[in-house]
């Protein structure tokens, strides 16, 4: 079968690759004059392509240098880089296709597994060493014990990577406002300015923070002005609103994304990450999407100067769920 080329045959091309025209001697075999001529024309064209590729590459490289020197420009840098690299790639690809030995070579596949003798010799060596260790069995065991203890001890520094997960997950800065001793906390905007109910309008959505904690990642709060006629507060939260203003945590109870889209006509809050949807008029209960729990509500009040305040922390831990969220 012709596919079975000899080892020597596979080496024919050596030393002649530089000159493409020599290549046709390999393909031709017993072909006539016309065949040889056609092969020669193909070779000529291929050689011109190789030359074009390398020349393109050189031009691309020079152009890249020029683009860089005159100040750089991302698009031109990309194009010139692509030309410089692609020219070489094209040239070598054509070269390999037309002027390198394409004849198939057959090689035997040798067995992967070792011979029985090799395995036996290995087993003897290994088990010989094992017996040496076994003669001092107690020492071996003690040595392994020491390594194990060291391994366990080496785990302890991992503890330094972070604090014990504690109140941070269950409380926000608003917690300072709750309880008997707590004093009410003002709600402020991103610049720290306190907010009056009149700053809100029916279609707007204001993000607020506890005063002094404008950078807290767990405290962003949504202030919404709702149609109070339609509003159905959850039991026990009848006095958590001020006028028509209600406050919910901005963090989705699914994976903690900020719930940033307010569909005013439908009174729905939509999380842009995974499309969980919450009913603003009824305790921000989830009505669609993957969230399983309502957005925690913040009890609102007014201080003597007429600014919005929180009278306690959120109704539940904010953001996504975790194992012991329900334990206090």
């Amino acid at each position: 079968m012709s596919a079975y080329a000899s080892r020597g045959g596979g080496r024919d091309g050596d030393g002649r690759d530089g000159d493409g025209k020599d290549g046709d001697g390999k393909d031709g075999g017993g072909g006539g004059e016309a065949d040889r001529e056609r092969a020669g024309r193909v070779d000529d064209r291929a050689e011109r392509l190789v030359v074009a590729g390398f020349v393109t590459s050189i031009i691309g490289a020079v152009a890249l240098a020029v683009v860089y020197i005159v100040g750089g420009q991302p698009q031109w840098e990309g194009i010139t880089l692509a030309l410089a690299l692609g020219g070489i790639g094209l040239a070598i690809a054509v070269w390999a296709r037309y002027f390198m030995d394409a004849e198939e070579v057959v090689e035997d596949r040798h067995a992967l597994a070792s011979t029985e003798e090799e395995v036996a010799a290995f087993t003897a060596s290994f088990e010989g060493g094992q017996q040496t260790l076994a003669r001092r069995g107690l020492l071996t065991k003690l040595g392994l014990g020491a390594l194990g203890a060291l391994g366990l001890a080496a785990l302890f520094p991992i503890r330094s990577l972070g604090p014990r997960p504690g109140k941070g997950l269950k409380e926000t800065a608003f917690a300072a406002a709750g309880g008997g001793s707590g004093k009410p906390l003002r709600l402020v905007d991103a610049e720290g300015r306190p907010i009056r109910p009149s700053d809100l309008s029916r279609s707007s959505l204001v993000t607020a923070w506890p005063e002094g904690h404008e950078h807290d990642a767990d405290a962003p709060t949504l202030l919404l002005q709702v149609d109070i006629e339609e509003f159905r507060p959850l039991p026990g939260r009848e006095d958590w609103v001020v006028g028509e203003i209600v406050a919910y945590s901005k963090l989705c109870t699914h994976t903690g994304c900020p719930v940033g889209l307010y569909q005013t006509e439908l009174d729905l809050l939509l999380c842009p990450c995974h499309q969980s949807t919450f009913d603003v008029l009824h305790g921000a209960e989830p009505v669609f999407g993957p969230a399983a729990r309502p957005l925690p509500q913040l009890p609102l009040g007014l201080d003597e100067e007429g600014f919005l305040i929180a009278t306690g922390d959120f109704s539940a831990p904010v953001g996504g769920g975790f194992w012991d969220r329900g334990r206090t």
């Binding site: 990309g78 194009i79 880089l81 692509a82 690299l85 692609g86 070489i88 790639g89 094209l90 070598i92």
Partner: peptide, 12 residues
């Protein structure tokens, strides 16, 4: 050749 062509496409 495959390397240079891959690199060329990525740069483009």
């Amino acid at each position: 050749a495959a390397f240079f062509l891959t690199a060329a496409v990525l740069c483009a």
